[in-house]
Amino acid sequence: MDEHKIEKHTIAVLVDNEPGVLARVIGLFSGRGYNIESLTVAEVNNADHLSRITLVTSGTRMIIEQIKAQLSRLVPVHRVHDLTDEGPSVERELALVKVAGTGDKRIEALRLADIFKATVLDATLTSFVFELTGTTAQVDDFVGLMGQLGLVEASRTGVVAMSKGATGF
């Protein structure tokens, strides 16, 4: 295996939802010079105040291992799972995409939205806001196509991910 090969990993982290916990995670990445390609966080267990962070990062094998070790070392971190390493997982991202235009471009945008199974959240005579859920690549494709059809803005959640099968986090 090439030790210099850059790998992309999706890592799920279960943390106590307490003040500063996100700052600790982000500070770890900036302080140690690791990449964050995407990071999402929200509380997933209200009773126990647990939040789940999903982050996509890249680095050599040694760096990825180091990232996981450093994350595990943070005191409010319960568990760290490397979904890329630990078998098959599903990943999804949600995007809101605003497109403005009239005539053929407007019709084409709507047709593409249908193909991508995007739904219309808002429509005016000159614009749409689409909601699209898919893999990062699908969202990239959709936003790319809309670029030629009057894209105004896009807002993306970043990746959330989960392992396949019956076992949980």
Binding site: M62, E65, Q66, A69, Q70, S72, R73
Partner: peptide, 11 residues
Amino acid sequence: IDPSSINKTVE
């Protein structure tokens, strides 16, 4: 005792 020390700079 610190797993992050392992393989940090030297494998």
